Amino acid sequence: MATYIVFTRESTQDQTELDAYQAKVGASFAGHPIKVLAAYGPQQVLEGPAPEGVVIVEFPDTPSARAWYDSPEYQTVVQHRFRGATYRAVLVEGV
Rank of each mutant, 00 (worst) to 15 (best):
M1I: 13
M1T: 15
M1R: 14
M1Y: 12
A2S: 15
A2D: 13
A2V: 07
A2I: 09
A2P: 05
T3Q: 02
I5P: 04
I5C: 12
V6E: 10
F7G: 01
F7W: 11
F7L: 02
T8Y: 02
T8A: 06
T8V: 02
E10K: 01
E10S: 04
S11N: 09
T12P: 08
D14E: 05
D14N: 14
E17P: 01
L18K: 06
D19A: 15
D19V: 05
D19Y: 11
D19C: 08
D19W: 09
A20I: 08
Y21E: 10
Q22Y: 01
A23G: 10
A23M: 05
A27N: 13
A27R: 12
A27G: 11
S28Q: 13
F29V: 05
G31Y: 09
H32T: 11
H32N: 14
P33C: 12
I34G: 00
K35R: 14
V36H: 01
L37D: 03
L37V: 04
A38N: 03
A39D: 03
Y40E: 07
Y40I: 00
G41M: 02
G41T: 05
P42G: 02
Q43E: 06
Q44I: 00
Q44K: 01
V45N: 01
E47Y: 04
E47C: 04
E47N: 08
E47K: 06
G48T: 08
G48I: 08
A50V: 03
P51E: 01
P51D: 03
E52K: 02
G53F: 00
V54S: 01
V54Y: 00
V55L: 09
V55D: 01
I56R: 00
E58H: 04
E58L: 02
F59W: 04
F59N: 01
P60K: 10
P60W: 02
D61K: 09
D61E: 14
D61V: 06
P63I: 11
P63T: 10
S64R: 07
A65Q: 02
R66H: 14
R66Y: 11
A67Y: 10
W68T: 02
Y69C: 03
S71M: 10
E73M: 05
Y74T: 12
Q75R: 14
T76I: 10
V77A: 11
V77N: 12
V77W: 11
V77Y: 08
V78D: 05
V78M: 09
Q79S: 13
H80Q: 10
H80I: 06
H80T: 05
R81Y: 08
R83C: 09
G84V: 08
T86P: 03
T86M: 03
T86H: 06
R88G: 14
A89I: 15
V90T: 14
L91S: 07
L91K: 06
L91W: 05
V92P: 04
V92E: 03
V95G: 15
